[in-house]
Amino acid sequence: MSISKKDVEHVAHLARIRVAPDELTRYQEGLANILELMAQMQDCNTDGVEPMAHPQDIALRLREDRVTEINERSSFQKGAPLVEDGLYLVPRVIE
């Protein structure tokens, strides 16, 4: 299973991970190995095996529809670089 440097750059960008040019080869090999393992698993015969969405055979626990949280804005915003009028400020995201 091969993966190009371009693919590595693409997935790194999607995940917003900065990869230095001299690290590209290492990631390229590492990801190729993972895909190799996947390819081996693809070869297994899974006829009659139901796909599962979670490793444990359990159902989602549900809670009652009640408001249980209080306003913790001031403590959450202590860690934010910039706030104004109760809003988190971030670099402008539209043109």
Binding site: E84, L87, L89, V90, P91, R92, V93
Partner: peptide, 8 residues
């Protein structure tokens, strides 16, 4: 917000 974006 003077050139920034506010998040609620």
């Amino acid at each position: 917000f003077h050139g920034m974006t506010g998040i609620d």
